[in-house]
Design a protein around this nucleic acid. Structure first.
Lengths: 172, 172
DNA sequence: ACAGCCATGTAACTTGTTACATGATTTT
DNA sequence: AAAATCATGTAACAAGTTACATGGCTGT
């Protein structure tokens, strides 16, 4: 998030409100609704850390705005971020834990859990594909949606593997 | 995390040190190295919130330990967690932002970025498959590894889609 | 004697997140 | 006159993260 904002600012300085809109577009608005307040919070924190510098700009027809631009330190941080190849790790771990917890406590049926989850993912997948059909303009957010679709498909396949393991040898 | 710990505790009460070990196993130790300190931090926070209750247990040969057990409120929270079907959203968004940032600032070559990232993911995939070959015992963490592998494969496919989009119509 | 595991914790920092407060201007 | 958009921020809480401190017991 910090880095995301810095990256956008290093492309072009903005004030908070505008940056919020840019972030919504870049991150796929609907996917992760972004609170405006957080933009301001993060901007002030970034300024305190010396990665951006704000300048107040008077406006005639509107209330004044404060435009933020990245500093040298900020540009360096962005460079590091771009060079970083780390990749967010598995959400499967979350669900896997649920599975073992459910199996252990007998508070819930593991296979039922898998089934519910798969139905939910299928629903989600349908949503995404519907959205994909809508944005046939080959526009900006298309790639994001395709990525989400591919991932969800992989996750669904994983759930099927889970179910197999769980039904074949009952109890661990 | 909070929920994960609660889930394990609702299966069986533990003291911090032991819970740490159980978490390592359940979450796939190597994937996310877990700091012991955090277990204690989280436990005390959970106790403050009333989801667990700790009881000190004297030991003859060892230093005393403090065993935590879930409360009614804790059990309810776990139940809600088990019923929750939300799924962690796309990491792709992170990388997508890098792409647009790189494309905009000309600070880095987007296609180069994709290439570097794909090589990294392939390396990671190889690691996982190596680990999979090792744990042929059909053991506990196998599912987790299979899930990770499926995901990374999906991500690699996505990178290929990205590259296509980016090379076919240069500049956005 | 020293390393390493068992066992517990705290202080401090970072980041995310939201609810709330404020006020101007533009559109309906 | 009401609703939406432009524009900014604060206070407070929730969670993750780590570095550090402490002490006993076990094995070499």
């Amino acid at each position: 998030m910090r880095e995301a904002m810095l990256a956008l600012l290093s492309k072009e300085p903005s004030h908070g409100y505008e940056l919020h809109r840019r972030l919504c577009v870049a991150l796929g608005e609907a996917v992760t609704p972004l609170n405006v307040g957080q933009v301001y919070v993060t901007l002030s924190r970034l300024e305190k850390s010396g990665f951006v510098m704000g300048t107040e700009v008077e406006q005639t027809r509107r209330s004044d705005k404060k435009v933020y631009a990245v500093t040298a330190a900020g540009r360096e941080l962005v460079a590091h971020w771009l060079a970083d190849v780390s990749w967010r790790k598995s959400a499967p771990a979350d669900f896997h834990l649920k599975l073992v917890a459910a199996a252990a406590t007998a508070a819930a049926d593991p296979v039922g859990l898998i089934d519910t989850q798969r139905r939910e993912l299928l629903r989600h997948l349908a949503e995404i594909q519907h959205a994909l059909a809508g944005t046939s303009e080959e526009g900006e957010a298309t790639l994001l949606l395709e990525g989400a679709a591919l991932r969800i498909q992989a996750d669904i396949r994983w759930l099927e593997v889970c179910e197999l393991h769980w039904t074949q040898r009952r109890r661990t």
